[in-house]
């Protein structure tokens, strides 16, 4: 939008919303909404506490392990589905089902299988993130121009070389796009998992603050998570843009 001839960046409207929040909070209309400044102060206080540091550590650890598994399993599976018809036929149905299934219903099953601890969270992150990574890797491999593969073959490249130097590289933009959406879904997974398990990480803190009606800390925690989700997504998007620099010529 432009105002008085100046272009105002879109995300600037978030500042307007933060101001509205502050005013609503100051008016003391709803106890659910404390002033934004109080939330930010609470956030800084929270960062000093051992319970927050500990919860963050646990959360980050489950998220990283879960994502690493999702990428480690998802990309190879997607690439294989893109190259081998039979694998595609067998797994395609399930990947397509689970990519949009209500996985929150599956968390109670994971809790009895993996216990009320970190393992359940790791598996939840994995299950939330992996399917879209598989689908995008598959799509990336399938749209590699056949002429590119034939070119490599005509110059005598081996199967392994074609896979490594042509297919994986050509599919990289889609693979990264899948990982970006996977990261966003993984953050949702870690939160849903922890809230449902409710005894570890941020889930425990959310439970604690909502029971004691500590809205400032509750919102501070929420803002941390929202910010983390946005930052992570921006980081992967940045990597994606660099890749698209050459992919644009495709």
């Amino acid at each position: 939008m432009t105002l008085f001839g100046y272009r105002i960046p879109m995300m600037a409207s978030l500042i307007v919303w933060a101001l509205v929040w502050e005013i609503v909070g100051r008016l003391d209309l709803i106890f659910l909404i404390p002033p934004m400044t109080a939330i930010i102060v609470a956030g800084f206080d929270l960062m000093q506490t051992g319970s927050w540091q500990n919860a963050t550590l646990v959360t980050v650890r489950s998220f990283v392990i879960g994502m690493a598994l999702a990428i480690g399993v998802g990309v190879p599976l997607g690439v294989m589905m893109g190259r081998v018809k039979i694998i595609d036929n067998i797994f395609g149905l399930w990947v397509n089902i689970f990519v949009s299934a209500p996985l929150s219903a599956l968390v109670p099953v994971l809790m009895i299988l993996f216990g009320m601890g970190e393992a359940t969270i790791v598996v939840t992150v994995f299950l939330f993130a992996v399917w879209i990574i598989v689908l995008d890797a598959r799509a990336g491999v399938m749209q590699v121009p056949p002429s590119l593969v034939e070119m490599a073959r005509s110059y005598g490249a081996s199967r392994a070389t074609i896979m490594r130097k042509i297919i994986l590289v050509a599919a990289l933009p889609e693979i990264l796009a899948g990982i970006r959406i996977g990261v966003i879904r993984g953050v949702k997974g870690v939160v849903i998992g922890q809230i449902l398990v409710a005894v570890i990480g941020y889930g425990e803190l959310f439970e604690l603050y909502s029971r004691s009606f500590d809205m400032e800390r509750f919102w501070a925690l929420t803002l941390f998570l929202f910010a983390a989700a946005m930052v992570l997504s921006a980081v992967v998007e940045n990597a994606e843009k660099r890749i698209e620099y050459y992919a644009g010529a495709r």
Partner: peptide, 9 residues
């Protein structure tokens, strides 16, 4: 992009 689930409680 955010984990809205956090707000359900």
């Amino acid at each position: 992009a955010a984990p809205m689930a956090a707000l359900v409680p």
